[in-house]
Nucleic acid binder design. Sequence first.
DNA 1: TTCGATATATAGAGAGACGATATACAGAGT
DNA 2: ACTCTGTATATCGTCTCTCTATATATCGAA
Lengths: 117, 117
Amino acid sequence: MRETDFDVQGFARDINELLVLSALRDEPKHGYQIALDVETDSNGLFRFRHGTLYPILHRLEDAGLIRGSWADEGGRRKKVYALTERGRRHLSGETSRVHEIVSRLLSLLRHPGEATA
Amino acid sequence: MRETDFDVQGFARDINELLVLSALRDEPKHGYQIALDVETDSNGLFRFRHGTLYPILHRLEDAGLIRGSWADEGGRRKKVYALTERGRRHLSGETSRVHEIVSRLLSLLRHPGEATA
DNA sequence: TTCGATATATAGAGAGACGATATACAGAGT
DNA sequence: ACTCTGTATATCGTCTCTCTATATATCGAA
């Protein structure tokens, strides 16, 4: 009985996407604010370069996990993103999945040879 | 006071490297055996395609974390890799680092807005 | 008026996993 | 004898994703 295996590349991508989604959990924000908040809240551990952030935002919007709407605030245009219901479920489900995977990973790294299933 | 930030891409790479190193913790193995063991021990969650495995092995050898030596066993040539002292330290240190990072990540994903430092 | 912060966006470079392909030997089945 | 599967190592091209650089534009402060 083989379970679905782990996608290493997708994992890195997922981490970034989840950081964005979680930043939007409590309130809608525009991209720049998301980057600022993630950096502040993680004490600089996690951060987004804008060349990384905006493609992620567009990807998440295309996937229907967030919804963006343009706002004009003092002549400065902002695209404010809100978490959709689907995005909220995704965040919750994927967070659990990440937790599960890293638990198994760390258990394997520390006790090789013992099946982690 | 800014700490060094997290390299998302490097994280995925590190996971694969650590899986290889941990497979070698108890005894030297050749590449094919490492792939088999990692897959078995993780119940199929983590696995290596050979197009992924061999470059990693060469990379780790270049970095001095493992040392390979050719062995001839019944006409079948195998390259047996052993963990170096440096590799052992790396495995131990990086495992702690991964643990630290995923703890902070999960804490952030579950409770956004609270500094995790 | 120049600099830095705010704000969004894309194109090009680089890194690394993955699938395909190649080589080669052993053992089992037909 | 032949073929297929498993063992065993290796590389190349493609794909995907991050990252750097660049571009555009507004605002406030020095």
